[in-house]
């Protein structure tokens, strides 16, 4: 029983990172009812960008993150403005397909540039751990992931609840047409929200890059995790994202501990499928979406 404590603690900490992966996706889904299927790939792109900064330019991982994260805001903004908004005007199906198209393009661009080899961002913190008891130690990188995840959630929460832009975002997500009648440029709001979403994905991407190895094709795996976090935690709910992340983190790490490491992904997916089967719109989701 005592050896279960370590995977439980790690699972909870991993949940913070997963929440960071998911909040951007959740924000966008709340507004445009679109699961951005390229979310995971945008995240992995940020991982590769920081890898370049660390390995080629010689920056420390932290400086690299500070450089890379702001770069992705305009990328997300532009993507929404020139590609996704156009598709959204065409009805509900084109955006799904366009987002999948973006995902494929990103994956293959990364594959062409970086080859299919496993990579990770070299960081000293990745091997450190804080010993707590004989059987339990806290990996520093997981603690960082949890901390940054919670910070990112709090930041997005404040932004959505307390600022003018946040109010416009909420208005657009509540009722697009009425928001436009009130003088809100909802397409511009979508662009800003997408910029924020991709920025949070970039933060998560740098963390994931330091914590795990990644490949050009890692994006979809994280997309599915992020989707799971939203399904369990509820669309647009920031605290729900943390809860969802922890459930999935626990499912994966405890599952891996009990059934062997090969079953880590499987356990996460099965928990998610079970939740989807019982509550097809998520535990806290809105039934009409």
């Amino acid at each position: 029983m005592t050896d279960l404590i370590q995977p439980i603690v790690n699972g909870i900490l991993l949940g913070g990172l997963y929440a960071a992966v998911a909040i951007g996706l959740s924000l966008m889904f709340g507004i445009v009812r679109l699961i951005n299927l390229a979310h995971g790939d945008l995240m992995i792109t940020a991982s590769y960008l920081s890898l370049v900064m660390v390995e080629q330019v010689g920056l420390s991982p932290l400086t690299a993150a500070v450089m890379v994260v702001p770069m992705l805001f305009p990328a997300g903004f532009g993507l929404q403005k020139y590609v996704l908004n156009r598709a959204l005007r065409r009805g509900p199906e084109p955006p799904i397909i366009v987002a999948l198209g973006i995902s494929i393009v990103l994956q293959n661009v990364l594959l062409l540039i970086f080859s299919p080899d496993a990579r990770s961002i070299p960081a000293n913190v990745a091997v450190l751990a804080v010993p707590v008891t004989e059987n339990l130690s806290l990996p520093v990188i997981y603690l960082m992931g949890f901390g940054v995840g919670c910070t990112a959630i709090a930041a997005v929460h404040v932004l959505v609840r307390r600022t003018r832009l946040g109010r416009a975002i909420r208005a657009a997500s509540e009722d697009d047409e009425t928001a436009r009648l009130m003088g809100i440029d909802t397409e511009y709001v979508h662009c800003c929200a997408m910029g924020i979403a991709v920025t949070t994905a970039a933060v998560a991407g740098v963390l994931v890059g330091m914590t795990f190895t990644f490949y050009p094709h890692s994006g979809p795996q994280y997309l599915l995790i992020a989707f799971g976090v939203i399904v369990i935690g509820g669309v647009g709910s920031m605290t729900g994202a943390l809860a969802g992340g922890i459930v999935l983190g626990l499912a994966q790490l405890v599952g891996a501990h009990v059934f062997g490491p090969g079953h880590q992904l499987l356990c996460g997916y099965l928990v998610l499928l079970a939740v989807l089967a019982v509550r097809p719109h998520g535990i806290l989701g809105r039934a009409n979406s």
Binding site: V83, R86, A87, R90, P94, I97, V98, L100, G101, I102, S103, I104, V105, N108
Partner: peptide
Amino acid sequence: MGAVAIAVMT
């Protein structure tokens, strides 16, 4: 293929 799918859809 990805690029063409995006272009056609938009």
